[in-house]
Amino acid sequence: MTKTINLTLKVWRQKNAGDKGKFETCQARNISTDMSFLEMLDVVNEGLTVDGKEPIAFDHDCREGICGMCGTVVNGRAHGPEKGTTLCQLHMRHFDDGDTIAIEPWRARAFKVLKDLVVDRSALDGIIQAGGYISVNAGGAQDANNLPVPQDKADKAMDAAQCIGCGACVASCPNASAMLFAGAKISHLALLPQGRPEAAKRAWAMVKAMDALGFGNCTNERECEAECPKEISIVNIARMNREYYKAGFFSGEKN
């Protein structure tokens, strides 16, 4: 027998980017504890639709924790209370019958709310566009060991590359800073031989872009690494800082 619970939701409702928005209360009844948080919202939306009301808009795609589309602040925690979990992988068994759940969109100057829980995260794309790539063709697959990559470097690059760009770091940062995101992207490429030639240019351009897009400044509060669904560590922020100092003080890189 699956267990079912009843919940009270306090959801942020906002018609469009220009609307002021407000919290609305609605009931989520007979929610199976096997459902994910998004499936719970689907059930609520079906009810709203039947009642002739506007369903709650929220972002999602893969629903298996890999695409980075989903994400809201649930009871004050980005992607909800579980560690290392995206909202789509958060299951309702972590809630109790009768709970009241506050659901809000990511809040940051750089992320505009488009509708209800949907925010525009293209500012993160802006950081990538500034330099989060290598600008030569990688070509066909090379013979193994043509470009030696030490295992620990490969592991660290892979840890950084786990970032799915969901924006939880920005949402949970007390300063709405994107440094964990930028740190992960800069680290991922700086650790690999293909990324080295443009490391200085990249660090410089991506940090500049991040500032221009209206993100806050890191104060090492460590909330981002605690909330990151991929548990990306702030050692990546330290590495970005080092790459930035190298670019600014020791490279021939001209802004």
């Binding site: 004050g76 980005a78 709310v113 949970s172 709405a176 806050g216 400044n217 104060t219 509060e221």
Partner: peptide
């Protein structure tokens, strides 16, 4: 700058244990 970077605050905000 950090104060300005989040014009609309959260109505509920909890720490994840970093601060």
């Amino acid at each position: 700058q950090n104060w300005r970077s989040r014009p609309v605050r959260y109505s509920v905000k909890k720490t994840a244990g970093g601060r």
